[in-house]
Design a protein around this nucleic acid. Structure first.
Lengths: 350, 350
DNA sequence: CTGAAAGCGCTTACAG
DNA sequence: CTGAAAGCGCTTACAG
C-alpha cells in the first residue's frame, strides 16, 4: 500500500490538507517556509505520489485517454497509436488501447466501458459512416476525435487525409502507365475510406476516359485475407485487370499473395498500388507503390485535438487534413523496385 | 454527466444503497421483488453504469491492467498485446499500453505513473537482467508478470520460451546445411534474450566442433536499424560469414536490407535465420527461416497469470514456458521459399 | 499561514 | 427487507 496523505499528516503533525497543498505546489496559498521544507523533505523521503483514483474522483479528471482501433497487429494502427502516445504522454496522460476487429458491437461495448471508467477522451479510428456510437459520444459529451475514418462529414473533430485525392493519384498513376483495365479492391461501403477511395478511383477512370466495369470492383474489406480473396476473384476473370488499386496496403499485401499463388508476376502481369505507406510497404519485393499518409502525425495531431478539448472543456469541430502523396515503387514500375538483382522480364505494358 | 446513484435514489424514493444493491445483483441481501423490479426498470431506462473511478476507490480495484513494451510498431509486441487484451477483456479489464523504446528511464517513469493510477497489475515485456524496476514492482506488491524477457532467473512470474533451445535450433540448422562461418547479430548483454540466444548459438557451434570467432558476434540490439548496421559490419569482414543467426526477426529484416544493399543474394551468398516468427517473416522474399514462438499465447498466458494473482491477492512465481520450433523457409534453403518464379542461381553451399 | 469540513460516487457492515 | 453511516484518498472553499 502506498503512503497516504493522512499518514503523512500524522507523521508531520499537520493537517492532511497542508500536505496536499505543498504536494501540489499550490501557488495561491502561501505556506510557511519552515513547514514547507519539512513537508517537502517528507514527500521526497516517502516518494509520495497522490492516489490517482481518489484524485480522479475529486477532480473529475483521470488523465487517461483511450484509442479505439480495429486491430493493433495492423501496422497502420500501431504507428497511429505511437503517434497518440507520443503526443499525450508528455502531458501526463496514459492511453488505453481497445481493439474492435471491425465489429460495431465490440466498438460499442468498449466505448461504454470507457465511459464508465471516466476516461478523459477517446480517439476513434474504427468509426463507420453515420456511426451511432459517434453520435452517442457526442451526446454523452465525451471528448473525442475521429482519425482516418469520419462518420458524418464535417460534424466531428477529425484528423486524416483527403481519400478521394489519394485514390485518384493512385489510379491516375496506373492509367498513366498505360493500364486500361484497372481493378479495385474496395473498402466497405459503411466506412468513409471505402466510399471515398472508391470514388477517387472512379473519378480517375472517367477523367481518363476509361470505362468503369463494375466487375472490376470487389469489396475486400481491410484485412490481408480479404485482399487475397478479392484479388483472387479479380484475377480469375476472363479479361482480368492488368492493374489493381487496393484500398489499403494490407489488402495489397493480400493481393501480392494471391497473384503469386496464381503464378502472376508483379508488376509485369499485374501492377499493384496500395494506400497508407505502412513500413512494410517499402520492404516488400517488389516494393509496393502506395499513397503515403503521415500515420504517426495522424496520431499526434489527434492527441493534440483531443487535449485541446479536454483542457478547454469545449467540444471542437476542427479538422486536420494532411496531403496524400504518391510513392512509386517496384510494384507498378518494373525495375524501379529495391530489388535490382532480379532479372527484369520485360514489361507488357503498352 | 452520467446519472448517479443519488439521483436514481431520489427518483425511486429509496436510499442510494438500495439502488447499489440491485445494480450489483447483490446475492446476500434479498430485496423485495416489487422494489427490485421498479429499480431494475429505472436502471435499464437510464442505462446506469456505476462510476468506475468511485468504485475503484472504494473497492481498491480499478479493472485496469497495463502492458509495458519497447515499441508497439514492432509486430512482435503488437501480437503480444492482442494476446493480453484477448485474455483480459472478457474478464472486464481494460489495458493501458506504454512504450519505453528500450529506455530504463522511460520504463521506470511509466511504472511509477501506473502505480499512482492504481492499475491492478502490469505485464512487462521490456525488462532488463536484474532490473531494479522489477524489484521495485515486487517491493511495492504490484502484481506483475514478465513476458519474453526475464529479470532474475526463476524469481518472477514469467511467460516465454527457452531461448537457449531456440537459438541452438537455429544455429544447428545452419551448421547442418554446411555453413562453417556463422555470424550472430546479438541482442544486448543486459537483456535475457540477448544473453540466452547468444549462449544457444555458441553451444550449437561447439557441439558441431565449429570455431567461435568472436568477430562473428556483433551486438545489434533489437531494431531493424541495429540489425542492418551490425549485418553490414559482419558482411564486410574479409572472411565474411556465409550465414547469420539474428536475435530477432526485426534484426533479420535489417540484415536482409544490408545484404541487398551490398549486392549479396539470400540465401546463396548469405543465409539468414531470425527469431519469433512474426507475421512479416513468412511474407518476406525469400521467406525468413525463423524460430517460431506462439506470440499471441505469450500475451494471453501472461494475462491469465496476472489475473490469477489479482484475484487471489497472492504473488506468484509460476512460469509458463512454450517450446520454440524451427520453421525452415527460403532464407536458408534456396528454392524452399515462397517465390517459386525467381530463378535459382545455384547454391554455393557444400 | 493552517485547520476543519464537505464532497467527489460508490459499497457494505451495521441497525432496525 | 431497507435505511443511515462510514469511509476509500484526495482537493479546495471557508474560517480563523
Amino acid at each position: 500500500m502506498p503512503v497516504t496523505l493522512k499518514q503523512l499528516a500524522a507523521r508531520a503533525h499537520v493537517h492532511p490538507s497542508t500536505i496536499s497543498r505543498v504536494a501540489n505546489h499550490d501557488p495561491g496559498q502561501r505556506i510557511a517556509p519552515v513547514t514547507r521544507q519539512r513537508i517537502e523533505e517528507l514527500l521526497r523521503e516517502t516518494e509520495y505520489r497522490p492516489n490517482g483514483v481518489a484524485r480522479g474522483l475529486k477532480l473529475r479528471q483521470t488523465l487517461v485517454l483511450a484509442v479505439v482501433i480495429p486491430d493493433i497487429t495492423n501496422p497502420f494502427f500501431a504507428a497511429l497509436f505511437r503517434g497518440v502516445e507520443d503526443g499525450a504522454s508528455p502531458h501526463g496522460y496514459n492511453v488505453l488501447l481497445c481493439n474492435t476487429d471491425g465489429s460495431p458491437e465490440r466498438q460499442r461495448s468498449h466505448l461504454q466501458s470507457l465511459h464508465a471508467r471516466q476516461v478523459d477522451g477517446v480517439i476513434l479510428a474504427s468509426s463507420f459512416l453515420k456511426d451511432p456510437a459517434v453520435r452517442w459520444l457526442r451526446q454523452q459529451r465525451i471528448p473525442y476525435v475521429l482519425v482516418n475514418r469520419y462518420s458524418d462529414q464535417a460534424h466531428d473533430p477529425f484528423v486524416g487525409s483527403d481519400d478521394v485525392v489519394g485514390a485518384r493519384l493512385a489510379t491516375a498513376h496506373l492509367a498513366a502507365l498505360g493500364h486500361e483495365r484497372i481493378g479495385h479492391l474496395a473498402g466497405k461501403a459503411t466506412v468513409s475510406t471505402g466510399v471515398l477511395r472508391r470514388r477517387g478511383y472512379l473519378a480517375a477512370l472517367s477523367e481518363r476516359g476509361l470505362s468503369t466495369d463494375p466487375r472490376l470492383v470487389i469489396e475486400s474489406g481491410y484485412t490481408e485475407e480479404g485482399g487475397a480473396r478479392a484479388a483472387q476473384q479479380l484475377l480469375s476473370l476472363d479479361d482480368r485487370p492488368t492493374a489493381i488499386f487496393a484500398v489499403t496496403d494490407m489488402t495489397a499485401v493480400g493481393a501480392f499473395g494471391a497473384a503469386r499463388r496464381m503464378g502472376l508476376r508483379i508488376p509485369q502481369d499485374v501492377a499493384i498500388v496500395g494506400y497508407n505507406d505502412i513500413p512494410l510497404a517499402s520492404r516488400m519485393v517488389p516494393a509496393l507503390t502506395t499513397v503515403h499518409v503521415p500515420i504517426h502525425d495522424f496520431g499526434s495531431a489527434a492527441a493534440r485535438l483531443l487535449l485541446e478539448q479536454v483542457e478547454t472543456g469545449e467540444p471542437s469541430r476542427r479538422r486536420v487534413i494532411f496531403n496524400p502523396e504518391l510513392i512509386v515503387r517496384g510494384s507498378t514500375a518494373a525495375g524501379a523496385g529495391d530489388e535490382p538483382r532480379l532479372p527484369t522480364i520485360g514489361a507488357k505494358l503498352r
